[in-house]
């Protein structure tokens, strides 16, 4: 019984890590795209120095 509980909690843990990883990937990609790559004049001008400093293609 004890072994079974341990196995379940391990599976849950791996599942939670993967779910958290996928969520982080989606949110992080949106943020980085907005700061570094989005083709919006307002975003470009606000993030101009950051884009250049990180070596994002700019202008």
């Amino acid at each position: 019984m004890a072994v079974k509980i341990q196995t379940l909690s391990l599976t849950d843990r791996i599942g939670a890590r993967t779910v958290a990883g996928l969520m982080a990937l989606v949110i992080g990609s949106i943020l980085v795209f907005g700061v570094g790559l989005a083709n919006s004049q307002t975003l470009h001008d606000a993030a101009h120095d950051t884009r250049h400093s990180y070596g994002f293609p700019c202008h």
Binding site: A20, G21, V32, D49
Partner: peptide
Amino acid sequence: GRLGDTVLANLVAGAGFALILAAVALI
């Protein structure tokens, strides 16, 4: 202002890169 914009952009970039890096580690 230019400084404020850069502070904000760096915070968003930091958060975004951190989430992607964490995602890579977790996956």
